[in-house]
Simulated scan of single mutants.
Amino acid sequence: MMSGFSRSRAAGLLAGAALLTTAACGSGAAETTASGSAQTSASGAKPEVVAAFYPLQWVTEQVGGPDVQLTTLTAPGIEPHDLELGLKQVSDIQNAALTVYIKGVQPAVDDAVTPDKSFDAATAVTTLPAGEHAEEEGHAEEEGHAEEEHGHEEAGYDPHIWLDPSRLATVATKLGERLAATDATHAQAYKDRAAQTAAALGTLDQEFTKGLTTCKSKTIVTAHEAFGYLADRYKLKQVGITLDPETEPSPARLSEVAKVAKAEGVTTIFTEALVSPKVAEVLASQVGAKTAVLDPLESKPSGDYLSAMRDNLKTLQTALGCTA
Rank of each mutant, 00 (worst) to 15 (best):
E153V: 14
T170M: 03
T72C: 14
V100H: 13
E48T: 14
G77L: 04
A200G: 10
T21R: 15
A29G: 13
L56A: 01
T126G: 06
V100A: 10
G321W: 04
R310E: 04
A252D: 06
A231D: 00
E136H: 09
D158Y: 08
L316A: 09
K210C: 09
E225P: 02
G144M: 11
K88C: 10
S307L: 03
G156T: 02
L56K: 00
A155G: 04
A42I: 09
K235V: 10
A284Q: 11
E281W: 02
D295I: 06
E141C: 10
L179H: 02
L316G: 06
A17P: 08
L20C: 09
L85S: 01
E154R: 15
S41M: 06
K300T: 10
G303K: 07
A112G: 07
E132W: 00
S285G: 07
V287P: 08
A198C: 04
V282C: 00
G26E: 01
A134G: 14
Q286A: 14
K117V: 12
A34M: 09
H186R: 01
T268H: 07
V68Y: 05
L313G: 07
D295W: 05
I161Y: 00
Q238I: 01
V109E: 08
A226I: 02
H186G: 00
G211L: 05
I78K: 11
D110K: 01
S37N: 11
G288H: 09
F53M: 00
G288S: 08
R310Y: 01
